[in-house]
Design a binder for these strands. Structure first.
Lengths: 144, 144
DNA sequence: AGTATTCCTACCTTATTAGTAGTATATTAT
DNA sequence: ATAATATACTACTAATAAGGTAGGAATACT
């Protein structure tokens, strides 16, 4: 049940944008450098966040990325969903036709509860909440 | 954040044993057949559960597997941990030396909360609880 | 025009998951 | 004893996904 680097990197990148909301677009290379992520890889992650409607891009010189909405309106679950896909611990939670026993399968219920537990945590936090948590606002202290 | 078949199969196998606790050992091939799992693959999963101390094996003819403890003393988190490894959403939760910023990293706190949420669900259920949940005790209704 | 940036798409490498195969070892029943 | 029935052990293989590279096209600012 490990988190993919995709999600971890993506959350960190989103936080970088959140921290710089007032200061205009942030370039991929800046984020990549600050967070120690491959530029080319991050490029792809940003594209995912963009198509999920969480960030907006500005092309060309002096371009970069900005959040598409205020940081207090972006829940961690939004970022998570975009990058990790829906938190579907098992196939049959998404696709009811996956298995005939769906209606009263005990293990399915368990995994559903696990999934719900994860989502409640992630839905309860916005990017802004996380920014507020950081003690030293200048240097965002996360690198996982 | 998908669950591996390893864990899914393992939980189902453990439930088969729980359901047959009073009736002596259950053979791998029986479980494999009932749960539609490859015999050879399940063999390996049972070995993992065994080395985790959750089941005991009886070799030779009329042998098979039984739970090492009463079903109400085996938490789902035990089975999960054995098969999936500790629910470590990120490396630094296990290994504090993994990253220098550990002490006040915001994202680490988030993943820790997620991890805690998952564990509380799994720790709150025993195999017996799940058996009790099944409506029709004869045919264990799970196949995910 | 020139430079800086995102955009797009294809590729590659490595790790993990899921599964197979074969043989050795232990236990029971005959 | 011997045959039959189980697990135990170890190695191999195939498929998939994760993580990352590469190159150039499109766009926008100066």
């Amino acid at each position: 049940m490990k988190l993919s680097t995709r999600t971890r990197y993506g959350v960190r990148a989103a936080l970088e944008l959140a921290a710089n909301q007032s200061k205009g677009p942030v370039q991929i290379k800046t984020i990549a450098h600050r967070q120690d992520i491959s530029i080319k890889y991050l490029e792809q992650l940003m594209a995912i966040l963009k198509s999920a409607g969480l960030v907006r891009s500005i092309r060309g010189a002096k371009g970069g990325y900005i959040l598409a909405k205020p940081a207090n309106q972006i829940k961690l679950s939004d970022v998570f969903n975009a990058l990790e896909g829906p938190v579907t611990t098992v196939e049959c939670l998404e696709n009811k036709n996956y298995c005939a026993r769906v209606t009263d399968c005990v293990t399915r219920q368990v995994w559903a509860e696990v999934q719900q537990a994860i989502m409640s945590v992630l839905q309860s936090m916005t990017l802004q909440d996380l920014i507020n948590r950081t003690k030293d606002k200048k240097t965002l202290n996360y690198q996982i």
